[in-house]
Design a protein around this nucleic acid. Sequence first.
DNA 1: TATTGTTTATACAGACTGTATAGTTCCCAG
DNA 2: CTGGGAACTATACAGTCTGTATAAACAATA
Lengths: 211, 211
Amino acid sequence: MPPRRRPASRAEGPARDTRSRILAAARDLAVEKGFDEFTVEKVAEQAGVSRMTVYYQFGSKQELLEALFDQLAERGGMDRLAEEMKREDPLDSLAGLVAVFCGFWASDRVALRRLRSWGGLRPAAAAADADAIERDAWRRRALETVARRIAQRYGKPARRDVKNAVDLLQVLTSFESYDVLARGGRDESDIAELLSQAALTILGVTEARGH
Amino acid sequence: MPPRRRPASRAEGPARDTRSRILAAARDLAVEKGFDEFTVEKVAEQAGVSRMTVYYQFGSKQELLEALFDQLAERGGMDRLAEEMKREDPLDSLAGLVAVFCGFWASDRVALRRLRSWGGLRPAAAAADADAIERDAWRRRALETVARRIAQRYGKPARRDVKNAVDLLQVLTSFESYDVLARGGRDESDIAELLSQAALTILGVTEARGH
DNA sequence: TATTGTTTATACAGACTGTATAGTTCCCAG
DNA sequence: CTGGGAACTATACAGTCTGTATAAACAATA
């Protein structure tokens, strides 16, 4: 039998404050320090809580990191994404998507990089692949939908090129791409602009449009 | 005084066999297992050597990983790269570069991913950025040179767009891009083809050419 | 008041890194 | 052949970190 499990209700009750304080502390620590210094002890200390509480709330260091990742992923707005998808002109949707993605990546760039790195280390190859694919699936689905709409309305890209285009869009809008560009000194809006333009180029829709 | 340092000659002498056996074992272990199981103990065991020997040769786990990274980075041919740069038509150089990069990434994809992840975790933010930039500098320089030559000969991209184009090429030819595409089920030549085409599109040089 | 959920203190087992120290084996120069 | 040094090994140990166990303090609430 598993010795003891997490408290039953993790989304409510007085424990919620503690959980969020711990998560905030974990985030800060992940940002400022390397993962060498990311110990349960220090997270607890920074959260003003005992080490045992962290284990009580999250069960293990790994689960704490997963919760942290979930929190970061959640905050980046699925809602804004749905909104952009509703635009009449799919080219507007595309620009909107790129902006949303960039905003998400920018919101916690350092923490995200650490967590993605951490994810790349943990499991065996197959599981890591599955994780990574799942993690980016929502982004791909949105891009696919928009690309299809654009193909339908503008006749480009050709039907058989849509998959290629979507693959490239997925690459361009990935966190890693954002990170590379940000390292080069560009800021968020700059990157969004560059990527939007590149996306149009790749789709073959290059004519300037009015709005 | 530092207690004891690495043996003076690390590129010669009878110790070379041991070093390379350890590095090979480290590589294998990094590929098959996660980094949880990547302990000095297990590396030593897999290399058929005692744990102390690993410390004698490399000094620390971190230095072992750095040596492993250097070895992987070295094997991917700087020489083939220089060769591609010599081609008469810079468009051929570009395709050649993309192929070289893809070949490099493909050669040890899983190990590279682990090591890159590991690099993303270690140091504080600033140092990590510096590392990452340095690590990819050679790739960027090559892309920059080729882009300039293409601009000069083909008039595209426009001078003020070269930096944008190079940034995008850097993104497309990064390991992370390759990894994303490979996860999607594409093989090396497939990816090289896709990326070459995309590079041409981004540079604005799209007409079909004879070879 | 009794119960239940939450937090804490303390203690401990197990694993890993890194250091210290001394011993072994092997090759090579004198 | 011999002495010395380089490479390797065995053992032991300190320090840190994770995770578990256990019991106790505390709070809210039924």
